[in-house]
């Protein structure tokens, strides 16, 4: 528009009248969503059916469910097999997985080849099969495991067989919860390696360069600058992996490990013929554990997300529900 225009000529004129107000606060009728009401009705009907089933069907036998959940063998199984198993396997999986990812991305072809083969091997083996093998590994070491690799071989070489370096019973390592943690952890490492690799690759290469330009060695730049930023990408899928691992601890019976939640509950079920209530009890425990894990995950995500994007919290569930039914104000 030409700036020479007369001041009176300012486009479409507002409603005439000297005291015509300037437009103020918007108070509009929101868009209506009739289909939302239909879906809400359908969902409410389904919820009603489900609640009625839960409350009126005797097969649930709720009082038995509560009792079964707090039996001491069940609680032991929960603590040892399920929780300790998950934590242990994930600690091994995350540590080895990140190491494998760094190896995979290194310039050294041997390291990156080893990492590739590891991932290839452990991703191919079903966990049930792997745990069964772990339980049977003792067969390979009837004389026990050398605590010092090559120790006895070297002793033999120098004619000092009588030295006999310390060994431990292989079954103590491979059978029991420890064996299960090792087996699940090694398997997990293969998946975590891929997750960690994607996380490391997601960090702008300029970050590593800026760190190196400040005089950091490659290793320190990885530890202090690249990995903490990669965690932002690594944490969410790791949460998934942890939850999946919680459920996979029910495979520990393949070793066999019996101090585990699901085995303990189902054996109560077969002793008492209350097969259905113990399944419900297992579902409830898994729900509790996974809910706790989800809280931990969101805390971690908030921690590693600091400095990225806005820190404004997601608008609450309540606000979104209100706006969905068109009543937000």
């Amino acid at each position: 528009m030409s700036s020479a225009a007369a001041p009176e000529d300012t486009g479409p004129t507002p409603p005439s009248g000297a005291q015509a107000e300037r437009p103020g606060t918007i108070d509009a009728v929101p868009v209506r969503h009739p289909w939302r009401w239909v879906t809400i009705a359908v969902i409410l009907a389904l919820i009603f059916l489900l609640v009625r089933l839960l409350l009126t069907n005797d097969a649930f036998n709720w009082s038995f469910v509560w009792q079964a959940m707090v039996q001491s063998p069940v609680l032991n199984g929960l603590m040892l097999g399920t929780l300790l198993g998950t934590v242990g396997a994930m600690v091994i999986g995350i540590t080895f997985g990140i190491a494998l990812a760094v190896m995979r991305l290194s310039d050294n072809p041997v390291l990156s080849g080893v990492a590739w083969i590891y991932t290839w091997f452990f991703r191919a083996i079903p966990r049930l099969v792997l745990l069964t093998i772990m339980g049977a590994l003792g067969v390979l070491f009837p004389d026990g495991l050398n605590l010092i690799p090559f120790g006895n071989d070297l002793a033999h070489l120098f004619g000092a067989d009588h030295l006999g370096f310390a060994t431990i019973d292989a079954n103590r390592v491979f059978v029991g919860v420890l064996g299960g943690i090792i087996g699940l952890g090694l398997s997990e490492a293969a998946y975590m390696a891929e997750i960690a690799r994607a996380g490391i690759l997601s960090v702008d290469p300029g970050q590593r360069e800026a760190a190196c330009a400040l005089g950091m060695s490659n290793g320190k730049a990885m530890r202090r600058i690249v990995l903490p930023q990669a965690m932002r990408v690594i944490v969410p899928p790791t949460g998934n992996e942890t939850i999946a691992m919680t459920k996979d601890t029910s495979l520990l019976i393949a070793i066999p490990v019996t101090t585990e939640l699901f085995f303990q509950l189902s054996s109560i079920g077969s002793r008492t013929y209350q097969t259905f209530p113990v399944l419900v009890a297992a579902v409830l425990w898994y729900l509790v554990v996974c809910s706790v894990l989800m809280v931990v995950q969101s805390r971690l995500e908030a921690y590693f997300g600091r400095g990225f994007g806005t820190s404004a919290p997601d608008e609450g569930f309540r606000t979104r529900m209100l706006s969905m039914i068109g009543g937000s104000k």
């Binding site: 300029g206 360069e209 800026a210 930023q229 590693f304 600091r306 400095g307």
Partner: peptide, 11 residues
């Protein structure tokens, strides 16, 4: 060294 795109550590 000062980079065109700053390369500050965002975290």
């Amino acid at each position: 060294m000062v980079f065109q795109r700053f390369n500050l550590f965002p975290h």
